[in-house]
């Protein structure tokens, strides 16, 4: 696998090839992994995958923003955002060279 963009379908193919699970079942499992992670996050839980990284939720306070085009001040409402913190193993593998 060289550079470019990897998608769900590519990951399903990998599972199909490496584990021997049917293509259909591989695609379904890829989807349910993502669903379970999304549901946990939407539910307010951080998701911690050892050896990979942690998806961390952060609550941002309200602040005053500005429309860069018009210069008009608009309130940016308090909101929840998610960040990803890669594990040391992932950082080491991605750092390369």
């Amino acid at each position: 696998m060289t550079a470019g963009t990897l998608t769900r379908a590519d990951i399903a193919t990998r599972i199909n090839q490496q584990i021997g699970l049917s293509r259909n079942e591989s695609a379904t499992i890829v989807e349910s992994i993502l669903d379970h992670m999304s549901n946990a996050l939407a539910d307010g839980q951080n998701v911690k995958i050892s050896g990979f990284g942690t998806f961390v939720l952060r609550d941002k306070a309200q602040r005053i923003g500005r429309n860069p085009k018009t210069g008009i001040e608009v309130p940016i409402l308090p909101r929840r955002v998610m960040t990803f913190r890669a594990s040391q193993t992932m950082r080491a593998r991605v750092a390369g060279k």
């Binding site: 696998m1 060289t2 550079a3 470019g4 963009t5 990897l6 998608t7 590519d10 990951i11 990998r14 599972i15 490496q18 584990i19 499992i29 890829v30 992994i33 995958i49 050896g51 990979f52 992932m90 593998r93 991605v94 390369g96």
Partner: peptide, 17 residues
């Protein structure tokens, strides 16, 4: 395999969408 394929792709300089 799911998480490894993401790490491998990034290590190869690619992206995962």
């Amino acid at each position: 395999t799911f998480f490894d394929s993401i790490v491998e792709q990034l290590a190869a300089g690619g992206r995962v969408e």
